[in-house]
């Protein structure tokens, strides 16, 4: 669990964009994974399987949240306060501005395109795995992925014209 906790929490956070909700759902994801361990095949890559379980729970929670009044939406600021597990603290500090920019750009995207970015670019799933997960043809997923990347790059450049230069 310690090995995948940051990954699962990251997935939940990017879907829900609220740290408390993400924490709660991430716990549910692990409980669900624990209960469904029998259905996991040993020679299978665990990450797509876990992300599939996680995505379903996140979407369930999002549906429930949408029935409630809208929450306070300050994801970019909140996200910048979270600790990333990958790079060192110094490197994280250096990229914090860029990361905040990316979060703001992601916030402005459509749900479908943001999910494509989340699954493929952030979580690193392959196109065929995403096609299986979303039950869509591979060609549709590929073109949607390209559109999402272009949209994100355009939005980031609109926020900061010097980004990437």
């Amino acid at each position: 669990m310690r090995r995948f906790q940051a990954r699962i929490y990251g997935l939940a956070f990017h879907y829900l964009r609220d740290s408390e909700e993400a924490r709660d759902v991430a716990q549910e994801i692990f409980i669900q994974i624990y209960r469904k361990l029998d259905s996991f095949r040993e020679n299978e890559n665990p990450v797509p399987w876990m992300l599939r379980v996680g995505r379903n729970l996140c979407i369930d929670r999002l549906r429930r949240l949408k029935a409630r009044p809208p929450a306070v939406d300050i994801p970019a600021e909140e996200a910048s306060e979270l600790t990333a597990s990958g790079p060192s603290p110094e490197a994280a500090a250096e990229t914090e501005v860029q990361r905040r920019l990316v979060y703001r750009a992601l916030d402005g995207m459509t749900d479908k395109n943001r999910e494509m970015i989340l699954l493929k670019e952030i979580q690193g799933l392959k196109l065929d795995e995403i096609a299986t997960l979303l039950k869509e043809p591979l060609g549709t997923i590929k073109s949607r992925s390209n559109r999402a990347r272009i949209e994100l790059a355009t939005r980031v450049r609109a926020l900061d014209p010097s980004y990437g230069a």
Binding site: Q5, R23, A84, V102, R149, L152
Partner: peptide, 25 residues
């Protein structure tokens, strides 16, 4: 500029996959 942004994002986005929860998680 768009191509440069795509290159930067390709390096930036995977580092956002993991967010460490609090110690009591």
């Amino acid at each position: 500029g768009l191509a440069l942004a795509l290159v930067s994002l390709a390096g930036e986005l995977p580092t956002m996959a993991e967010i460490e929860p609090d110690s009591a998680f």
